[in-house]
Design a protein around this nucleic acid. Structure first.
Lengths: 131, 131
DNA sequence: CAGGATCCTTAGAGATACTG
DNA sequence: CAGTATCTCTAAGGATCCTG
């Protein structure tokens, strides 16, 4: 084993220039997180407009951009049938599924603790609201 | 067990108006995620400028805003000594620590798979780059 | 149906200067 | 040291129209 250099710490999100920051932003961004979560549903595979309905509030443009970024990062697989009308199915790749798992653990935890969060907010606003 | 209504699903991030979306954005946002991660370090407690140095690239303004949002959500505790010069320490609350745990699981997973991601990107750019 | 192309708006972000 | 205040400006995001 050679430990003179640090090849295993190649990617550090704390560094401004690390590409992992970009990927993390795709994954955790407003629409990225919801899109991955939607695709993690049991159905496994969803069409463009199905996704759009699930991800409440997303525009066509943002969903399209989000899906492209996730596909480029190898987290989402895009299956386009050259039929008319066109039919395109999106599903998670194996890597994407592992990412989504961890993402959902975070999301569900936050959802489950929202009462605490909301309580903390009220307390904060009462004490510091008088600024 | 009564399953006729769904009171336990009170917070659903898929809904445009759910407050959990806001909290999730504080947690997963560019600076929120890095700030929580930095505070999850073994030291436990960090001062403003220590944080600023760890979170490479953050401005005073954004760090300040981020910390306020996280404090308001009850994830970060702020301890200000009214001395001169002032000294303020930030640390995770118990709830914040649980959130950070799950967040770090996601971050470390992504960091560990960046080679795959970068490989996928190259393949994507080669095949679709010709647009 | 799945998205590309366009235009438009504004909130988020950075830089700087100032203060207790 | 730990912020706040102010300014500027870009780029994310939304709405709309269009096409294979």
């Amino acid at each position: 084993m050679d430990l003179t250099d640090t090849p295993d710490l190649a990617y550090d999100v704390f560094s401004r220039t690390c590409p992992s920051r970009g990927t993390l932003e795709h994954v955790t961004g407003r629409w990225g997180a919801l899109t991955l979560s939607a695709l993690a549903a049991p159905e496994g595979s969803l069409r463009f407009n199905e996704l759009r309905r699930r991800v409440d509030g997303v525009s066509e443009k943002m969903l399209s951009q989000t899906l492209q970024a996730l596909e480029r990062d190898g987290l989402v697989h895009r299956d386009a049938q050259p039929t008319n009308p066109p039919r395109v199915d999106y599903e998670l790749t194996p890597l994407g599924r592992e990412v989504a798992e961890r993402l959902l653990a975070l999301i569900h935890f936050v959802e489950g603790r929202m009462d605490e969060v909301l309580g903390a907010r009220e307390r904060y606003d009462v004490t510091r609201g008088c600024r």
